[in-house]
């Protein structure tokens, strides 16, 4: 068997020599059914590339009127004037980044903690229970998070968490001001809960990829479990854990419905976290059904900006995780 029976089709299709030449060669040599099948699944594989390219192309196309009118200044302009038809993405980019970063600051330590618990501590049976719970947390629909965040979490944060925070940190601008009905703060906490499964799951995979030899080396030097984790495991897994966190950041930046429900959709550069704000995604969702004229291309351009932000975040995160899990040290998911 081996090579002769299993020629990797695209190997000869795309790399060794010309595409067409090889297609004909293989058609003459190989089984016709094999060739057709290989070609069909290849088309489906390529369709994923087509969709991705299509997303960029469509958003670019649909946002043309907005791009032509506002130019590059759309990206930083904080204008948002419906009367004068003057729009900018600045306010929404600000809202997106601030909520996503707060969510990340809240979720990253807990997510890595869960991963550490699952990999270094948990007895196997408990491991399954906690693992499933985290999985189900990822399955709860965004809109249900929104409803729960609005009616259940927001009053709780307003009555029990915000007052002590303000008592201690109230002199800082982000914690000053009145806790209004809906808030950036609540939206960020809900986002943190929503990205927790992502951060935890990827961190768990990354920590599992750390070879046990590293753990044993540290333990044999007389380290406690915490010292083993903080001095051998974490430094080894550093880039992957960072990747997990950034992946969570990407999730938070793109999350729509929960934020739309909670944040108040008030296009302003908020100074207090207890005030209202808006994110790119929440603005698109909230304004779509009344959009007309120029607002439609404006929303499309906002979508393009959101796409660019999340793609940059995602690709950098994946590269970091790949660096560790596939490993320059040849350490495949050991």
């Amino acid at each position: 068997m081996g090579e002769a029976a299993w020629p990797s089709l695209p190997d000869c299709f795309f790399i060794r020599r010309g595409v067409i030449l090889n297609l004909f060669k293989r058609l003459r040599r190989g089984n016709l059914g094999d060739n057709i099948f290989g070609f069909v699944v290849l088309l489906f594989g390529v369709s994923i590339l087509v969709i991705m390219a299509g997303i960029v192309f469509q958003l670019w196309l649909q946002s043309a009127p907005s791009r032509e009118k506002f130019g590059w200044s759309f990206l930083w302009s904080t204008a948002y004037d419906v009367q004068r038809q003057n729009y900018g993405a600045g306010v929404f980019i600000y809202g997106t980044l601030v909520t996503a970063f707060i969510a990340l600051i809240l979720a990253a330590p807990v997510g890595v903690g869960i991963a550490a618990y699952l990999v270094e501590i948990a007895p196997r049976r408990l491991n399954r229970v906690v693992g499933s719970m985290v999985e189900l947390l990822a399955a709860v629909p965004s809109i249900v998070y929104g409803l729960w965040g609005f009616y259940a979490l927001n009053p709780f944060l307003r009555d029990y968490i915000a007052p002590p925070l303000q008592a201690v940190l109230g002199w800082l601008p982000p914690f000053s001001g009145e806790f209004v009905g809906t808030s950036v703060f609540t939206a960020s906490v809900v986002l943190a809960i929503m990205i927790l499964p992502t951060v935890a799951a990827v961190s768990r995979d990354v920590l599992r990829a750390v070879p046990d030899a590293q753990r044993e080396a540290m333990l044999a030097l007389g380290a406690t479990r915490w010292e083993m984790f903080s001095r051998a495991v974490l430094p080894y897994a550093k880039s992957g854990v960072l990747g997990a966190a950034i992946l969570g950041l990407g999730r938070a930046a793109g999350e729509t419905m929960a934020v739309t429900f909670i944040i108040g959709n008030n296009p302003q550069i908020f100074k207090s976290l207890f005030g209202q704000g808006a994110t790119i995604a929440s603005e698109i969702a909230a304004k779509w059904q009344e959009a007309s004229g120029l607002t439609l291309p404006v929303l499309m351009e906002l979508g393009l900006v959101l796409f660019a932000i999340t793609i940059i975040i995602n690709i950098s995160a994946r590269l970091l995780v790949m660096l560790l899990v596939r490993g320059p040290r040849g350490g495949l998911r050991a």
């Binding site: 030899a213 590293q214 001095r231 430094p235 080894y236």
Partner: peptide, 13 residues
């Protein structure tokens, strides 16, 4: 103390 079969220095140090 213990020395293991495969060398396992800490790669980040």
């Amino acid at each position: 103390g213990m020395v293991f079969q495969k060398p396992n220095p800490f790669p980040t140090m």
